[in-house]
Amino acid sequence: MPAYLLQRLVALVPLLLGITLITFVVMHLAPGEPVEMQTAMNPKVSAQARERLREFYGLDKPLHVQYLNWLGRLAKLDFGRSFAPDNRPVMDKISERIPVTLSLNVIALVLEFGLAIPIGILAATRRDTLLDKGITLFVFLGFAVPTFWLALILMYLFGVKLGWLPISGLHSLGSDKLHGVAWFGDLARHLILPISIATFGSLAGLSRYMRSTMLEVIGQDYITTARAKGLTERVVIYRHALRNALLPVITLLGFSLPGLIGGSVIFETIFAIPGMGQLFYMGVMSRDYPLVMGILTIGAGLTLVGNLLADLAYAVADPRIRHGGNA
């Protein structure tokens, strides 16, 4: 296992470099120098900020030197200061918002897998029944529904029409006077809609994937053997089939992360949740370059960490990977 871990960690290095290179390229997409762009587009940026930016990126130096300098700063997690009036270090602004986004996404991820796995098993074991067809229909709609539209519909139904749930922010006005259970209840009520939306986003794809891996496993010889031995269907499915069907699903854990993090821009903006996605959106709208670049790099970095965790989980679950050596 330590050898495998080391191997995965070494493989991360070129990916990390690639991420920084692409981010660097994106930064230089702006016509002319980013500094001049600011001057032309945004009179709000003071001469002082412009000078600081120029210095920060070392824009008078050749490109490869700029890139290396930038890498050096990244290694210290120094993304410069925000263009916003508060002028705070980008890293501070991001790190105070990461917990919100991360915990929302982790809850969504748990719910997603918690729902998709039973749905997939159900559809696979009752293949071609009305239930399976119903699930297929649901999956098709789930693939196609724009999450932001679904959010609007739910806001209208539960927020406006029925008035059951709050539709923006994380806390009600005056919730700071609440304590313990009441405070938590208030938070939970605010989270119901955003988390439902975040979960629904990838539920469809995941259940479909679970169904097909399950079907594949059920077709294997050892399942036929297990049935021939006279084991009950329950034992066959949950003891023999499920374990093997779950393996490929673990890989999806890593794959679904970029989608979730990217999706947080949408639901955090709609529901006014003070997370990284909303910060990113505000940064894009106000052309706060250091902030945008910082979040882009961190978002990709988080995905990388997620993929690593999924790889490790896979190795724990499947000894063939652990001992196989050349994975």
Binding site: I19, F280, V284, G299, T303, L304
Partner: peptide, 9 residues
């Protein structure tokens, strides 16, 4: 590795 939506934005 990039959340596509982040990259596009």
């Amino acid at each position: 590795c990039f959340p596509t939506f982040f990259l596009i934005l």
